[in-house]
Write a protein that binds this DNA or RNA. Structure first.
Lengths: 187, 187
DNA sequence: GATTGTTTTTGACAAAAGTCAAAATTTAAT
DNA sequence: ATTAAATTTTGACTTTTGTCAAAAACAATC
C-alpha cells in the first residue's frame, strides 16, 4: 500500500486527508498465475493497482486469443472501457504471474472524486500519461514493420519479452507467432 | 462559443461561475484551408475546440507525411503529447478546410483547474472518452485487415472519406494509397 | 530421469500489401 | 474553355507476412 501511495504522489500532490481516504478505500487482492481478474461479458467494477506481478488483457477473435496489452508493477489495470462505461467487458484480464494487487470499486472512486479535488486531479494527470503511452503504441504499431516493432520492444520494454511467452508477445505486436520467431532468428 | 459550452456540458455539469470563466478564457481563431495550427519542433501551448471545419495531425517519416488522426466539428484538438508535457511537438496540425476554432492556453487551463473542481472533472471525463476512442482505433488498426478497416471507416465515420483526400485516409489506415484504391475498386 | 505437455522453431506455400512508374481522372486557376 | 496541378487508378513485380503442418526444444511432474 505504501508503494501505491508513493507511486501516485508522483502524479500530483495529495493532502493528508485524501491520502488517508485512499489508504482506507483500497483493498488487497492476491491472485495466482493464470487466474482471471475479469472475463468478457462481465461488467468491470474495479480498478486495480498492480503492486507485484504481471497480467495481460486479451479478447477472442475467430477463436484465437488476441493479447492487446500487458500490465506490470506500478501499473493501474482494469478493462478501461467497461470500468468507465459500466458496460459488459469485451476483454479478459488474466494473471501471467502470481500477483499482489490493490483494488478500488468504481462507486468508491466516484465518491472520492466528489470529496477530494486533489484525487480527481491526480487521476486526470494519470490519464494524460496513459493516453500518451497509448498514442505512442498506436503510432508504432501502425507505421513500423514487424521487425522494427520487436526491436523497439526489446529496447524500450525488455521486461516484456523476458517475462511473457512468445505467443502473447506476437499477438501484442500484431503479428503471427511464426513471423516473430523468424524475426528473432535473424537477430 | 455557445456550441462549445453546449458540447462540454454533455460531459459533466458546470456551475454558472465555471461556465462564465470558460466563456471568458476561450478565444476565437479563424483559419483558412491548408494553414498550420502547429508545426513539428514547436511547443504546443494551446488546446483548441473545433467549432466548424476539419484538420489533420501528421508527422514526417522517411520524407513522407503520415496522417495519424483527423479532427472535425466538436472535437478538441491539440498535439496532446506536446501540450501536456510542454515538449517540442513531433507532429503537425494542418487545416483541411477553412475552420473556426476556440483556443485556450495551457496556463489559463491550469488556472481554471485550480479554481474550479468541476472543470477539472469535466476534463477528466473528456479524457476518458478520448482514451476509449483511441483504444478502439488501436485494436481495429492492429487486428483487422486493410479492407476491413476501410469498410469500418465507411460505416462508422463516413464523414472522413467524404471530406478528406484519399492519400490522407490511406496513411490514416496504415496502408499505401495504391492498396486503398484497389480496395475501393473491389467494392 | 522418463514422460507428458507446452512453447518455439522450421519448412513449404499462399495471401496480402508495398513499390515504382505511368496513365487516367478530377479539381482549380487563368 | 483551356491549361495546369493535384489526385486517383492501373499494371507489373517484389517484399512481407500469414497459414498449416511437423519437428525440435524446453519445462514440469511423477
Amino acid at each position: 500500500m505504501q508503494q501505491l501511495l508513493q507511486h501516485i504522489k508522483g502524479y500530483a500532490p495529495l493532502s493528508t486527508e485524501a491520502e488517508q481516504a485512499l489508504y482506507d478505500c483500497f483493498e488487497q487482492v492476491v491472485l495466482a498465475k493464470n487466474q482471471h481478474l475479469l472475463t468478457e461479458g462481465k461488467i468491470c467494477r474495479h480498478l486495480y493497482f498492480l503492486e507485484k506481478g504481471a497480467l495481460r488483457g486479451y479478447y477472442t477473435l475467430d477463436g484465437k486469443e488476441i493479447t492487446h496489452w500487458f500490465g506490470f508493477e506500478n501499473d493501474f489495470v482494469t478493462s478501461f472501457h467497461s470500468f468507465t462505461t459500466q458496460e459488459p467487458a469485451v476483454e479478459n484480464l488474466q494473471l501471467l504471474e502470481g500477483s499482489i494487487l490493490w483494488s478500488i470499486s468504481k462507486d468508491t472512486l466516484t465518491e472520492l472524486f466528489n470529496r477530494f479535488h486533489d484525487i480527481e486531479r491526480l487521476v486526470r494527470v494519470a490519464y494524460e500519461k496513459y493516453y500518451i503511452r497509448l498514442e505512442e503504441r498506436y503510432v508504432n504499431s501502425q507505421f513500423k514493420t514487424a521487425a522494427e516493432r520487436y526491436q523497439q520492444l526489446l529496447e524500450e520494454a525488455p521486461h516484456i519479452p523476458e517475462r511473457v511467452p512468445l505467443g502473447h508477445i506476437a499477438s501484442y505486436l500484431g503479428i503471427s507467432q511464426e513471423t516473430l520467431s523468424r524475426i528473432r532468428s535473424r537477430l
